[in-house]
Nucleic acid binder design. Sequence first.
DNA 1: ATGATCTAAGGAACCGGTTCCATTCTGGGA
DNA 2: TCCCAGAATGGAACCGGTTCCTTAGATCAT
Lengths: 336, 336
Amino acid sequence: MKVTINDIAELTNVSKSTISRVINNSGPVSEKTRNAVTEAMERLDYKPNEIARSLSLRRTMTVGVVMQDIRNPYYAYACWHGDRLLEKSGYSAVICNVDNDPEREQACLNSMGHRSVDGVLCIGPQEETANIVRAVEEMEIPVVLVDTDPEIAKIDTVNLDNIYGGQLVVDYLVSLGHRRIAFVTSDFTSAERGRRAGYSEGLEARGIDLDPSLIISQGEGQWHRGECPALMELIRKGNAPTAIFASNDFKAIRIVRLLHRLGLSIPDDISLVGFDDIDAAAMVTPGLTTIHQPIDKMIDIGVRILIKRMEGREGPTEHEVLRPWLVERESTRKVR
Amino acid sequence: MKVTINDIAELTNVSKSTISRVINNSGPVSEKTRNAVTEAMERLDYKPNEIARSLSLRRTMTVGVVMQDIRNPYYAYACWHGDRLLEKSGYSAVICNVDNDPEREQACLNSMGHRSVDGVLCIGPQEETANIVRAVEEMEIPVVLVDTDPEIAKIDTVNLDNIYGGQLVVDYLVSLGHRRIAFVTSDFTSAERGRRAGYSEGLEARGIDLDPSLIISQGEGQWHRGECPALMELIRKGNAPTAIFASNDFKAIRIVRLLHRLGLSIPDDISLVGFDDIDAAAMVTPGLTTIHQPIDKMIDIGVRILIKRMEGREGPTEHEVLRPWLVERESTRKVR
DNA sequence: ATGATCTAAGGAACCGGTTCCATTCTGGGA
DNA sequence: TCCCAGAATGGAACCGGTTCCTTAGATCAT
C-alpha cells in the first residue's frame, strides 16, 4: 500500500495540516517540526498523491496537445518542442492524436474538458472553424490554436503567413524562368488553403494566368500510400509542368520518389519546392528547396500564451503571425 | 462553475449514491428515478469529474509511454500505434520523452509512480538494466518493456531478435560478395549492441576476420547534426569499405547524404543497409535496403500484456522475441 | 396476517490531499 | 506582572466522486 499523508501524521504526531504546510511551504512551521516531518517523509519514502492534490487544488498541471498525426515529422517535432517547454514550467503533456479525422478532432476537444487538463494546445486543427470555436467555448479552460484559420478572433492563435509563403515560392520559381507551375495539395488544412491562395495571388501578381489543370488535389490517405495518379497522368500526357509546388514537404518527398520512378530528374526535368522544411527535407536527394516554417518559434509563443492563461492572466486574445522564408537547396534550377 | 453530482442530486431530490448508480449502472435503480436523473444530467450537461473518480477508484485510465525521442520516426510510429490501441481500451497515453538522456529516463520512471498512471509502456530504454529493474520495482504499477535488454527476467518484455537481424545483414552482404563491411552505430541502446553482436557473429560464421577499424561508433548528438567525421576520415584515407551496415535507418539516411556529399554513389561505390524499416527508408533515393522490424506487432503485444496486468491478471512474466526480416531495395548491389 | 425476501434509496465513511478558522503557546513591551 | 501580537499547530470542512451498510417499503409464500 502507498504511504499517505496520514501515515506521516501518525508517525510524527503532527496534524495533516502541518504536514501539508511543510510540503508546500505554505505556512509557518517550527524548525523542529519541519525536521521531524521531513525525516519521516524520507524514511517512509513518501510522495504526495498527485490525484488527490489535483482534486483539491482543481488543477492537474497537465495540458492536452491535440494534433493531426504524430507520424508526420512536422507534428512530431512540434510535439517534442512543446513537451520540452511545458515540462520546464512543471506541466506534462497529454498528446491526443486525431488522425486527420474531423470527427475524432471534435470528440477529442470535447473530451478534453473532462479529461482534466488545465489547458489545450491545438496544432493544425482541421475541423470547421465554427465547430472549433464552439467546442473551445464549451470547455472552460484556456485553449491556444497554432497553425489554424487566421480568421478566428475569439481564441488566442499563432499562425504562419501561409499566403506570403505561397507567394515566395511562386516569386522564386518565376525568377528562375518557370511559368508552368503545378500546385499539389490535399486542401486539407487551412494552412494548405492559405498556401494555395498565395500561389494564386503570386501568379496573378506576375501576370501569369492560372491554369486549373495544374492544381492537383487529393486526399491525405492517398498521399500516405505514396501515390498521386493525377500528377502521373498529367506528366504522361506530355503536359508536364516545369516546376511543382507541393503544399508541404511530406508530399514533396513522395513526389521525389514518383518522379524518380518516371525516370524524370529533379531539378533537370522538373523543379520541386516543398513547404515546412522538415528534417527530412535536408536529407533526401536532391536536397529539397522549401519554405522554412519556424515551428519552434510558433510553439514557443503558443506555449507562452497558454501558460499565461492557465496562470489566470486575462487580457485581449492574441493573434501572432510569423513570416516564413525560403531555403534554397538542390531541387530547383533555371528553366532551360 | 462546473456542475457536479451534488447539483444533480439537489435538482432531482435523489441522493448522490443513487446518481452514482445510474452513471455506472452499479446497482438497482427504479425506472422512474433513472429517467429523472438522466434527464437532469442531460439538462445541466453534466460530465463526471474524472479526477474525483480517479481518486476514489484508485485508477486513472492513463498509461505512461516512455521513449527516447519522439522526433525519431521509429518512436513516433510506435507512439502513434500504441496510443491507438490504448484508446480502444479506454486508456489515454501520457507520453514522456527522455531525449536520450539516462538521467531523464531515470527521473521519468521515478516520477511515473506518482504521476498517477495505471501502467507504463517503456520503449527502447537505455539506462543500465539494473537501474531500470530497481525503478520498476519501486513503482507499484505494471510496466512492460519493449525493445530492451533481453536479459531482463523480472519484467515483462517484448524484444526483437537483434542478433539474428545483424546476422541477416552480414549474410546478405557477403552473399553479394562484400567482405569489407563497416558497422556504424552509437552503441547506445541494447538493440544496437545486439545488432553489433549479430554483425560480429555473422562475420565469424562466414570466416571473415573482424577489422576493428571498420566499427564506427559516435554519440547520438553528432548523428542528429548529421555528421560522422570518423566515417569521412576512413573513406578519405582510401580505406573505404565496400558496404556499410548502419545500426538504424535514422543513421543510414544521414549516411546517404554524407556519401552523396563525397561524390560517392550508392550502391555503385558503396552498398548501404539500415535497420528498422522506418517510413522514410522507402522514400529516400535510392530506396534503402534494410531490416524490417515489426514494431507494430511488438507494440500490439506490449500493450496487450500491459492491459492484462493493469486489469489485475497475474501470471509469470512474459518474454516475447520477434524475428525481423530483410527488405531489399536499391541501396545494395553485388560488389564488382 | 405475518415473517422472509428482495428492491430501491439514503447516509456516512472514504479516497488523500488543501485551507480556513480557532486555539494554544511564546516572547516582548508597558 | 499582565496583556497582546504573532508564531505554531490542530480540527474540520471541502474537492467530487464511490461504496458499504442500513432502512423503508413492496412482494410473496405460508
